[in-house]
């Protein structure tokens, strides 16, 4: 374990973190050990975000550091078995709405918190959600939308999942600019979240993590 690497990542010292990864990888450190340090650092970042020490700049930079580190490690990680995840979460922005920033942050926070995340993107029609629930088998579905028009589309998506007989298999959470509990009730979702941490907490509470 390299405490130096963990600190560099967790404290947002990007150049130092990348140099350390190059150095460790070059000196023959096992890639899985490096990856473990990265994961520890990401946990710290998640926790600092939860404690309102970190905000969007740190989450975005953490995502960038993670991508760059994975680029370095990828060649030697090819045959590594996938790590066991906390559970599967399907996310997407509902039909008619193309906002993606909030959804992307939720997806990133779920990933660094140990969930396997499938992101259907933006402007996703209800049948596409249904198909993905059937095929990906998530425990949690997250619907995003910022427009008042999204309220109806969220309701339609929840109804479509219900109609397909899949409603009992998933918990559904919603989020976005104008979402509150009245919207939650209207759409038939199980819960709504104000930010990415709320999404992580909801998902964890549902999968018993």
């Amino acid at each position: 374990m390299s405490q130096q690497l963990i600190d560099a990542i967790a404290d947002m010292r990007e150049d130092e973190a990348l140099a350390l990864v190059e150095e460790l990888a070059g000196s023959g450190a096992p890639p899985l050990a490096i990856l473990n340090d990265v994961k520890t650092a990401m946990d710290i970042i998640g926790q600092r975000y939860e404690e309102s020490v970190y905000f969007l700049p740190e989450l975005v930079l953490a995502g960038e550091m993670l991508n760059q580190i994975m680029e370095v490690l990828k060649p030697s990680l090819a045959e590594t078995a996938a790590e066991k995840s906390l559970g599967k979460v399907l996310i997407g922005t509902v039909k008619g709405d193309i906002h993606d920033i909030g959804k992307d942050i939720v997806g990133f926070m779920l990933k660094v918190s140990g969930f396997e995340v499938r992101d259907l993107g933006v402007d996703v029609p209800a049948p596409k959600f249904v198909e993905a629930v059937r095929e990906f088998q998530p425990q949690v579905v997250g619907l995003s939308g910022f427009l008042t028009l999204a309220f109806d589309e969220m309701k339609a998506t929840v109804a479509a999942i219900e109609k397909a007989g899949l409603r009992d298999q998933v918990k559904i959470m919603i989020g976005g600019g104008q979402i509150d509990d009245a919207v939650r009730e209207y759409t038939g979702a199980d819960a709504y979240g104000k930010d990415a941490m709320a999404a992580v907490k909801l998902a964890k509470s549902w999968v018993g993590g």
Binding site: P57, L59, V60, L61
Partner: peptide, 11 residues
Amino acid sequence: GTKGIMLDIYR
């Protein structure tokens, strides 16, 4: 963009 400006705060 959001991502760009958030990174610029650090970079």
